[in-house]
Nucleic acid binder design. Structure first.
Lengths: 164, 164
DNA sequence: ATTAAATAATTCAATATCAAACGATTGAAA
DNA sequence: TTTCAATCGTTTGATATTGAATTATTTAAT
């Protein structure tokens, strides 16, 4: 029956902050998912649709970079979106290695139907913080995220709002 | 060629904070993973081992609750840990519905070998923030995470450090 | 005591996710 | 021009993840 972690004050502070950060991110994400705004779309699917909607057609590698997933994963996500008729693949004629992914009309309608509800939900989630607190949180997170390697998550990494 | 999201100031503030929060969480998590401290352990596997190490033997439902995953998922994660000889299942004799999961000697050695490196990595990640900034970040995240539904992530949800 | 509701773990189907290996294509170097 | 390196997308194998259905067991209610 071992006891809990004990370390220096510095270690405990970092660990506590780490845990709270992760819990906050997960909590918000889970509650957003539970609201059901995203309907049947998985987070990655939503991320792709939203990215295409806001940035226009992109190739798969760019898309993977935007939602910060692997290229192999992107193949599957696009596959599933294509099955649902939400996106369309188009081989690039200039450079046949590339495949451009387009939003279909149905895809556009889908993202437009989902977006307002999702934005509203996010605003509600953050309403527990004052505007100033939100600014502060944003600043601190930015510093923390800045590190060396760029990585982020699904929905969160999409250009829903601009990163400065 | 649609443009980016435009909304009220309130909406943009919430969206920006949301994105920065998610990016920060993902960045930190990804960089921690890249350091390779966790060796071959997946985040969930690490979470289970660490929870057992710090809290002692638990049944699967408790374990699932601790690392905030579904019970179905827990079955698989424990399966894989058992294959590696890191944990051991034991049917509860008083209530045969329960299965207690124990850390094996090999499991204990594994988590003890991995933990110091991981803690060190977390401290390094958060060293971009001053102690005060870490406290502030922790406070704000706590408020945000407090919401109704409890949810968190793998490693982060483990009792590495105590939640107050 | 028998039945009904609740709970624990498992299973299943679908999707996600990565890393690594691979095939196709392109562009640059020899 | 031929070859080589780089890049793109796909495939594969392993693990994760959820939600829903299922089985086993226990507890509570009748």
């Amino acid at each position: 029956m071992p006891t809990h972690y004990h370390g220096t004050a510095e270690e405990r502070r970092a660990l506590n902050t780490f845990i709270k950060l992760m819990r906050a991110a997960d909590s918000v994400e889970a509650r957003l998912a539970q609201r059901g705004c995203l309907d049947d779309l998985t987070p990655s699917q939503f991320g792709v649709l939203e990215t295409l909607y806001h940035l226009g057609s992109l190739c798969q590698t760019e898309l993977a970079h935007k939602i910060l997933k692997s290229s192999g994963n992107m193949t599957l996500v696009i596959d599933n979106l294509e099955k649902q008729g939400l996106v369309r693949r188009e081989r690039d004629l200039n450079d046949r290695r590339f495949i451009t992914v387009h939003l279909t009309e149905k895809g556009r309608q889908t993202i437009e139907a989902v977006l307002p509800c999702h934005v509203k939900a996010i605003v509600e989630e953050f309403s527990v913080l004052t505007p100033e607190e939100q600014e502060t949180l944003g600043e601190l997170c930015k510093k923390l995220g800045k590190g060396q390697s760029p990585k982020a998550t699904l929905v969160s990494s999409t250009p829903l709002a601009e990163q400065e």
